[in-house]
Design a protein around this nucleic acid. Sequence first.
DNA 1: AGAAGATGCATGCGCACGCATGTATTTGCT
DNA 2: AGCAAATACATGCGTGCGCATGCATCTTCT
Lengths: 146, 146
Amino acid sequence: MASRTKLANEAWEALFRAQMTIAGEFEGAEEWGSLVPREYGVLYALSTAPGPLRITELCEDVLLSQPGMSRLIARLEDKGLLERVEDPSDARASRVRMTAEGMRTQRQVGAAHAREVGRLMTGGLDRDELTELRDLCQKLIGADDE
Amino acid sequence: MASRTKLANEAWEALFRAQMTIAGEFEGAEEWGSLVPREYGVLYALSTAPGPLRITELCEDVLLSQPGMSRLIARLEDKGLLERVEDPSDARASRVRMTAEGMRTQRQVGAAHAREVGRLMTGGLDRDELTELRDLCQKLIGADDE
DNA sequence: AGAAGATGCATGCGCACGCATGTATTTGCT
DNA sequence: AGCAAATACATGCGTGCGCATGCATCTTCT
């Protein structure tokens, strides 16, 4: 089954390069305001959550170490986009939520980012292919979790 | 065509998360010896090239800034895996090639890495799906280049 | 040939990251 | 109740990165 492994490596390299290339396009883009992609990622995660999130929860969602998240939140707090609220059921934890300006920024940057994503992704793939790609990627990591 | 953009964003998020998740698995893995993934990336690029590569060429291949590549090469040089050779046709350029030990390390780490990739990728996807994923990713970035 | 701009690479600097560790709080065991 | 282990977060420290910049060399134009 050597060729199965070879195929797996080709798929990984293609996946890796595709993500790096697209992400690279975003890095320098103007759409982020004064944020960087990962900072927007935190705002986005908060925007989809039902309530304030723990720092460790954000770590899992944004794929950042806990100390890194701790500092990232401090930066966004300094910018006035986030605020910490204490968890009533656990005095060790501190939950994070967006301020009004944070929500405004998230919507604004999110809209611009979505347009940019749409432009890059639909440039190369049609509807069916996008669906297929999405499903394959989800299946790929879905299997790892279990 | 709003739903087309929505689909594109779902596909991007899935692609992004899949790559980050899999790459995250590699970060901490033991397979790399004393290298990090990006350092192996340089050795791999050199292993597939017909001859010594320029620093700027490696930048494009490994998706790293030119100063970053300059230092990365210096580190690998210190480890004895790489050496610089001067370009006969351009005295500004310095080309890079692997030492014998570099080639040995590349093969060794490459084999271990390939096994790991195979394990993670084939865990979630079968043959046809891997092929499909590879082709979709290649098509996605292929379209951006032109 | 000579000057002006482009190109290839290296270095100073500030920043964000991960790892190791510290402190406070909670949980579990007896 | 009381102590040990686990958990949540913050901080010190070292390192790699990108940006701005500098130096050397090549290219182009006149």
